[in-house]
Design a binder for these strands. Structure first.
Lengths: 204, 204
DNA sequence: GTAATTTATGGCAGGGAGTGACAGATGACA
DNA sequence: TGTCATCTGTCACTCCCTGCCATAAATTAC
């Protein structure tokens, strides 16, 4: 990796960390881009080159989570029922969270606190998740050979899987003290949900 | 109803209709609040007194839908399993859509077209739905006597029900030509979903 | 090592969203 | 009719975000 790329990564993290600290200190809404940029020692204009906006910061781990999930999905056998595949993908996400570097884990937990203090952010995150859903529907449709214009099954399968994700992540209590807690809760929710569907419901 | 209230309702609808037409004409993003206010013959400042922003316009029917759903939920027997109650509430929403006045039905369908042309709007709508979810979780927790801090069941029940709603409304094809189509599809999705859960899964 | 090229950064200008404050207009009501 | 409450428009302001251009830094070629 060249000096240029390393520098970019450093600024990206500087902005992210500055933002997280400011959010926790004085609240998400009360924090301006100008402040974040100032704390990270870049110009506001540069901030927008790294992040599309304040919201983008808050959704930082979503894009990563989606990538993990889609990779995991691709690695499942093609003839597996899609819901089963998605649940495995969710477990892969849980595993991945646990393997975050200490720095990333700290960022992750800080962001979680920001979410707890700003319920409207949850809405934005869920909105972002809706876009992920559309891509997953495509993936599931391709895997099953179903046409999403004809069958509502791919939509349902994905929507249910995302519900499980959301419930696993969102529930504020009991309090989460580390990424392991969170991973455990996600796994637990997957286990719980696994038992409530009639076997084979997700087969075309 | 006094003259004052009638006038307010008229302005509200004037703004809404002006916005819908502009959205369809030149796109949601390209339409400014100033234009909407101008077309509705009010000042921009007044626009913001009626709607918190452009987004609020797009979520106009959500608040109403939530109200319908919660009323329907309240009217179900308290000892009914919560998921069953929610599915009945969804059917109530479907019934309600069908009974919209022709004017409201037209607005509803126009808004749907705007959504189709602006996928990011779906995300915002889903985000709003997330707030609805939290309120429904409370309602379900109260009905079942479950503590949402202890059991993840209320969350799951509500999240699954909302998934069904979303799938029913969102799926763009086959094309929807009237509110009856939409109501039918919602009912259809509820019927489909009803069969995929193991009986009694939602009982504490 | 130096020159040429690519790429990141900062500053500036400007549009659009959204809000608070105040003055004037208009319906409500005695 | 006169008083009161409420709605409306104007103004000024902050913040978000983008396009544009000049500068500075890293990369590559020579």
């Amino acid at each position: 990796m060249g000096l240029r790329e390393r520098k970019k990564e450093k600024t990206r993290l500087a902005i992210l960390d500055a933002a997280l600290d400011l959010f926790l200190e004085q609240g998400y809404d009360a924090t301006t881009v100008e402040q974040i940029a100032g704390a990270a020692e870049v110009s506001p204009r540069t901030f927008f080159r790294y992040f599309s906006g304040k919201e983008h910061l808050a959704l930082w781990y979503h894009d990563y989570g989606e990538a993990v999930m889609r990779e995991a999905l691709d690695s499942r056998p093609a003839d597996e029922p899609p819901f089963t595949s998605l649940l495995h993908a969710l477990r892969a996400v849980a595993d991945d969270i646990q393997e975050l570097t200490p720095e990333d884990a700290e960022r992750f937990l800080k962001m979680r606190k920001v979410y707890e203090a700003n319920p409207t952010l949850i809405g934005k995150a869920v909105g972002r998740a809706a876009e992920t859903e559309l891509r997953l529907v495509d993936a599931v449709a391709r895997r099953t050979g179903l046409d999403p214009d004809e069958s509502r099954l791919p939509y349902l399968v994905v929507a249910f899987a995302m519900s499980i994700t959301r419930v696993g992540f969102e529930c504020p209590r009991p309090e989460v003290t580390g990424v392991s807690d969170l991973a455990a809760r996600l796994r637990e929710t997957v286990d719980l949900a696994e038992r409530v569907f009639v076997p084979g419901w997700d087969r075309p």
